[in-house]
Amino acid sequence: MELNFYLILALLLFSIGVIGVLTRRNAIVVFMCIELMLNSVNLVFVSFSSFLGNLNGQIFVFFIMTVAAAEAAIGLAIIIALYRNKSTINLDEINILKW
């Protein structure tokens, strides 16, 4: 497989994640779609790393995964706090920051 195959695969996954974020109304599912988008960026990093023969891309993936784990913990804590206050996680009903 050439490099373009992996790039197109990652871009398709990223676009699916974007469509999911824009269409779904459940906060947890939106969050999972963001994880999917992070993953597709990791795929681009790893494929460039393997094709160019440069290890730095894989190191970056390691750091991105650490930050993603931290982000998941914080985001789910925010969702739990939100559910406790408003007893819903439907994004259409959470609009106190909209004007």
Binding site: E71, A73, A77
Partner: peptide, 13 residues
């Protein structure tokens, strides 16, 4: 970063 995330998650939840 991970330490801050753990503390933050406990405080928020």
């Amino acid at each position: 970063v991970l330490l801050a995330a753990i503390v933050g998650a406990i405080v928020l939840a």
